[in-house]
Simulated assay, not measured.
Amino acid sequence: MAEITAALVKDLREKTGAGMMDCKKALNEAAGDIEAAVDWLRKKGLAAAAKKSGRVAAEGLVAVASNDLSAAMVEVNAETDFVARNEAFQTFVEEVAKVALKVGEDLEAIKAATLASGRTVAEELTHLIATIGENMSLRRARVFTVPSGVVATYVHGALRPGLGKIGVLAAIEAPSTSDAIEVLGRQIGMHVAATRPSSLDVDNLDQDAVARERAVLIEQSRASGKPEAIIEKMVEGRIRKFYEEVVLLEQVWVHDGETRVKDVVKKAGVKLVGFDRFQLGEGIEKVADDFAAEVAKVAGA
C-alpha cells in the first residue's frame, strides 16, 4: 500500500474540497490510490463541496459570544434562508463565535481551530457543505476586549439567544461592571442596530466620505446663487448634520429622541471605545434568480 503522505492528502483536498480527515480516511480506504479515493469521497457525498464553492452565499446567520471582558461576533453565510433554520448549521455558527472569542478575529486562526467533533472549523464547514448541499463560508469576525467594563452584545430578531441576522458589539470601559452598564450596553446595541452609524466619532470617520459629501454640498449650495461666504456657512451647517446622521456619538439617542449618544455615555460615567455592526449579507452581490425577470430584461434589450 502506498504511504499516505501529507502531500497526497493535500492533493486530494485540492481535487475534491473535502476535509483533511475525510481525505486521509479515503486514501486509507483506497490504499493510497488517489482516483479511487476521489470515488470513495464522491460515494460518501463528501467531494461535492468543491463544486458548490462558486455559488453565491448571502444568507446564513450572525452569532455573538461573550465572557467577562470580551465578546466576539461572526458571520457565516449560506445560499438560502432555509439553511439558517437548520439546527446543525445554527450549532456550527454558535461554535464558531465561541472559537473567535478564544483565538481572536483572524479568519485563518478561526478556521484552523479544532471543534469538539475533532474537525477543524474549516473541515466542519466543508462537511456541512457536503451534508446540507449548499455553498457556505465564514465571512468575517470581530472581537472586542476591554480592561474593565463590558463588551455588550445585541442580536436583532434572534432565532435563539445570540443568533440572528443583525448583530452588534459595544465596548464600554468603566471602573467596574454593573447591571446599569449592562443595560446601557444593550441599549447602545439596539441603537446601533437601528441607526447603522459609520464610525464611533468624527475623527474616525472616513475622510474620503466626508470630502465627497462636502463636494456635493458645495455644488448644491452654489446653485442657490448666494455669496461664497454664505455658502461656506451653509456647507459647514450641513456637514454637522451629516455627522449627526453617521457618527454614533453625535447621533440622537433613539430611546428618547432628543439626547445625543455622547451625552448619554457621559452621564453614565463610562467611555464607549468601540462598536461594530454585522448585518447578514450586506455588501454581497446577489445573483438574480427570477427567470421571468431575466427573460423580460433580455427581450427588452
Rank of each mutant, 00 (worst) to 15 (best):
T5P: 10
A6Y: 11
A7D: 11
V9C: 09
E14R: 09
K15A: 03
T16P: 06
G19W: 13
G19V: 06
K24T: 02
K24I: 07
A26R: 04
A26K: 04
A30Q: 12
G32F: 07
A37H: 01
D39V: 15
W40Y: 11
W40H: 15
R42A: 05
A58Q: 08
E59K: 10
G60T: 11
V64D: 01
A72R: 08
V74E: 10
V83N: 13
E87A: 04
F92C: 06
E95D: 15
V96E: 07
A97P: 09
E105Y: 03
A116I: 10
A122N: 13
A122V: 07
L128M: 08
A130V: 10
A130I: 12
E134D: 08
L138M: 15
V143Q: 00
T145M: 05
T145I: 09
S148K: 14
L163C: 04
E173M: 02
V183W: 04
L184F: 03
R186M: 03
G189F: 12
S199L: 10
L200F: 07
L205F: 04
L205G: 10
D206T: 05
Q207L: 06
E213T: 09
E213H: 00
V216E: 03
R222T: 09
K226E: 01
E228L: 01
K241N: 02
E245V: 00
V246G: 14
L248V: 12
L248C: 12
V252F: 03
H255W: 03
E258A: 14
R260H: 01
D263Y: 05
D263N: 10
G269N: 07
F275I: 15
F278W: 05
A288Q: 12
A292K: 09
A293S: 11
V295K: 00
A301S: 13
